[in-house]
Simulated scan of single mutants.
Amino acid sequence: MDKPLLNSASWSDALRIRKAHLNALLKTIDARQGKSSQIQTLTINAIKAEMAHIESQLKRRK
């Protein structure tokens, strides 16, 4: 089954929703402060990089 193509407005909405989801994940990981493992640090850095990429895509669409 083929997915319908997203128009510009719905694509921006999808990016905003993804960014909000990543932000919630980041808060969940950061909530457990204390001794963070190397994997947690890498995960946090990956989430922040993805959020920065989404932000650049949103700015480009404006």
Rank of each mutant, 00 (worst) to 15 (best):
A24S: 13
E50M: 07
L15M: 04
A52P: 05
I29R: 02
K59D: 07
S56L: 05
S10P: 00
A14W: 08
A14Y: 07
I54N: 00
P4R: 03
D13F: 08
Q33G: 11
N23C: 05
A20C: 00
A20T: 11
I29W: 02
M1S: 11
L42T: 09
E50W: 01
I17P: 00
K59A: 11
L42A: 14
S8P: 03
L25A: 05
I54S: 02
L25Y: 05
R16Y: 01
D30P: 00
Q33P: 07
S10G: 00
A14V: 08
H53R: 06
T28R: 11
D2I: 13
L26M: 06
I44L: 11
H53E: 11
A20R: 13
Q57A: 03
L15G: 03
S12R: 15
A9F: 13
K27S: 15
K48D: 01
D13L: 14
D30F: 04
L5V: 11
S56Q: 15
N23M: 12
W11S: 05
L15Q: 09
R16C: 03
A46M: 05
I44T: 08
E50L: 02
S12G: 11
S10N: 14
R18A: 12
D13C: 01
S36D: 08
S56I: 03
D13N: 14
S37E: 13
H21L: 09
K27F: 10
A24V: 09
D13Q: 12
M51I: 05
S12E: 14
L22P: 01
A9P: 01
D2R: 14
M1K: 10
R61H: 08
K48H: 08
I47V: 07
A31W: 01
S36I: 14
L5S: 11
N7P: 03
I47M: 06
S10C: 00
D2A: 14
K3Q: 06
Q57M: 11
L5Y: 08
G34L: 05
A31D: 13
D2W: 05
S8G: 03
L15V: 04
R18L: 04
